[in-house]
């Protein structure tokens, strides 16, 4: 089943001015329920525009956005409810923090939903736990925290609404490797605990290979490829031509194969590669013995 379907979406910025530019041109995409879906594309391919379609911040010129089986623009007055069902974390979300304490900031979304005090407290606690923020940090002002911590507070602010579909635009942009693992670990923890759908926008092939079940590739406002992560990474040529590529380790394994090593061709993460290399070494040892 699909949690979110985009049907034939077209969108143009600054219509009828010299700055007119077509951002999306007939995008058809679907995002599977309960899975981690990746959305990848080169800068300017329309990812960020598409993301704002998903929760109704932008309205497509043509086309339909179907969330949990319902067209979100059926009742334009209830678009605010859609935003609670489809939570969106923007790029560099740390710049949206405003409250006196992190706790209050995370509570902003749930408060807008009109939840009870107890429910809000519970949600803030569990969201903070997913992203690994302890209670001393929660009492601090968000302006005192480090970049990575701020990012996690902002992420928790959207997670606390417990949206059926959680959309993240470049969640790890500009973070160090530890920050990346923490953020993605938090997202994965949330997804596993709630069984909700997650959509991650990224242009790091390593990240999507490690965390995403399915991938959709955008190029110049159109869908170039879509399918499971493994399927999509088989199209190395198309990916390279659209300014992307495959994970470095996948390329490495391909080069190994070209040199006559008989390793599998579906390796996308370093961990998988390690296992494969071990397997090969053991095989050889067996042959030699």
């Amino acid at each position: 089943m699909n949690a979110l379907e985009l049907k034939d979406i077209t969108y143009t910025y600054s219509k009828k001015t010299p700055f007119e530019s077509k951002a999306l041109d007939g995008v058809n995409a679907f995002f599977e329920q309960g899975k981690v879906n990746g959305l990848i594309g080169h800068t300017g391919s329309g990812k960020s525009t598409l993301v704002q379609m998903m929760n109704g911040l932008l309205k497509p010129d043509i086309g339909q956005v179907v969330l949990l089986g319902k067209d979100i623009w059926e009742e334009p007055k209830k678009i605010r409810q859609i935003r609670f069902q489809c939570g969106l974390v923007f790029q560099y979300p740390e710049y949206q923090l405003f409250e006196e304490t992190c706790e209050k900031d995370i509570a902003f979304g749930p408060k807008n939903m009109g939840l009870s005090e107890d429910e809000i407290r519970e949600r803030v606690r569990s969201a903070a736990e997913f992203v690994g923020l302890d209670s001393t940090l929660l009492k601090k002002s968000p302006f005192e925290l480090s970049g990575g911590q701020k990012r996690r507070v902002a992420l928790a602010g959207v997670m606390a609404m417990e949206p059926s579909v959680l959309v993240l635009d470049e969640p790890a942009a500009g973070l160090d490797p530890i920050g990346r693992t923490e953020i993605f670990g938090g997202i994965r923890g949330y997804q596993r605990a709630k069984g909700n759908t997650v959509i991650i926008v990224s242009h790091s092939m390593e990240d999507v290979a490690e965390y995403c079940d399915n991938l959709t590739v955008l190029k110049n406002g159109r869908v170039l490829l879509s399918g499971s992560t493994g399927e999509v990474f088989r199209h190395e040529k198309e990916l390279v031509s659209s300014g992307l590529g495959v994970p470095q380790i996948t390329r490495f394994m391909r080069l190994l194969r070209e040199r006559g090593v008989e390793c599998a061709d579906n390796i996308y993460t370093v961990e998988e590669a390690l296992r494969e290399v071990k397997r090969l070494l053991e095989e050889r040892r067996g042959e030699n013995a």
């Binding site: 935003r83 974390v89 923007f90 949206q96 902003f108």
Partner: peptide, 13 residues
């Protein structure tokens, strides 16, 4: 615009 959108995404009205 960006911050308004971000807060709207959290249900600000």
């Amino acid at each position: 615009d960006k911050i308004m959108n971000a807060q709207k995404a959290r249900g600000a009205d």
